[in-house]
Write a protein that binds this DNA or RNA. Structure first.
Ligand SMILES: [Mn+2]
Ligand SMILES: [Mn+2]
Ligand SMILES: [Zn+2]
Ligand SMILES: [Zn+2]
Lengths: 138, 138
DNA sequence: TTATAATTTATAATGATTCTAAAGTAGTGT
DNA sequence: ACACTACTTTAGAATCATTATAAATTATAA
C-alpha cells in the first residue's frame, strides 16, 4: 500500500512535480493491490465522483500520457472507440470480452509462447501483442 | 481479373445496388492479383486522383462498411489514429512496421498456432489476433 | 415511362483528443 | 517569510475522423 511520499517520489523520479491533482491520480491508479485497466473516461468519472474540486480533462490526459511515456502505464488500443490504459506494465496479453467490453489479463503461463517464423531483412521484432476476443458461450 | 459483371454480381449478392460509385470502389479494391491493406484516407485519395467526378466521403464510408459487414473486407484497428481495411478476409495475423506504418500479412504457416490455456466459464473464444510490431534492426 | 425506394451528396453534427493562453502553484534562492 | 521563475492547471476553443441529415439523383420494376 503506497502512501503520499511514495507517489511524490514516483512523480519526482519521472520528472513531474507532485501537484495535488497528480497525487490524486496516482492514488486512484497505483494505490491498489491489483493492477487494472481503465479508460480516460472511467478515470475522469471516478475523479468527478470524489466530490472535491474536479480535475480538468487536459490534466488527466497530460498526466496519463506522462505516465505512459515514463513506463508506469501501458496503452491497449482496441479500436477507434476503445482505448484502455493498463497499470500492469509487464509483458502480457489480453482477453477482450466482446459482450461487456471488459479487458482481462492473460498471464504469461496462459498463452503458449508465440513463435513467428517469418523474418524480414533489416527488421527486428519490437513486440508481439495477442488479443483474444471472447464472447458468451451459452 | 474481374470485370464489371462480376462486381455487379458481387454487389447484388450482398444486397447492394450496383451504382457507378460502388463499382468504381469495387474495381479499386477487388480488381487486383494480390490482396492489400488500405485506409479510408488512402481510398479516398486514390478515388480523387482518378480525375472523373469524385465520390463523396459518406459513400466511401458507407460502401466500405457494407463490404465489411458482408465479409468482403476485414478491419484491422491499430489504434485511434490508424485503422486499416484488408481485402484478405482469411484468418491471418500481421506485422506492423512501426517505422513506416505498413501492415504486412503473416501467412498461416508464419505463426505457430497460438494456444490459450486459460478458459473462462460461460465464455468461448471468438477470435485470436496477433500483431507483431517490427522496426528497423540496423 | 412512371412510381418507388435506394443512393448519393454536400453539409452539419458529434465526440474524443489536443491546443491555447491566462491564472495559479511549486521550487529555489534570498 | 518573500519574491521570482518555471511549471502546471484550467476553461474553453480548435481539430479531425467519423456519422448523421435531408434534399437531389438514380436504379429498378411495374
Ligand atoms: Mn493516446
Ligand atoms: Mn469503422
Ligand atoms: Zn493488462
Ligand atoms: Zn492482412
Amino acid at each position: 500500500m503506497d502512501n503520499n511520499t511514495d507517489f511524490i517520489e514516483k512523480l519526482r523520479s519521472s520528472g513531474l512535480r507532485p501537484t495535488k491533482q497528480r497525487i490524486r491520480i496516482c492514488k486512484l491508479l497505483f494505490d491498489r493491490k491489483k493492477t487494472f485497466h481503465f479508460t480516460i473516461n472511467d478515470l475522469s468519472k471516478t475523479l468527478k465522483k470524489e466530490n472535491i474540486k474536479q480535475i480538468s480533462l487536459a490534466t488527466i490526459y497530460n498526466t496519463v500520457h506522462s505516465f505512459k511515456k515514463k513506463g508506469y502505464l501501458k496503452e491497449i488500443s482496441i479500436n477507434r472507440e476503445m482505448s484502455y490504459f493498463d497499470t500492469n506494465t509487464s509483458d502480457h496479453h489480453h482477453f477482450l470480452d466482446i459482450n461487456t467490453n471488459q479487458l482481462i489479463d492473460l498471464k504469461k503461463e496462459d498463452v503458449e509462447k508465440v513463435r513467428i517464423k517469418k523474418n524480414l531483412p533489416g527488421k527486428k521484432i519490437n513486440s508481439i501483442e495477442v488479443l483474444v476476443k471472447i464472447e458468451n458461450s451459452n
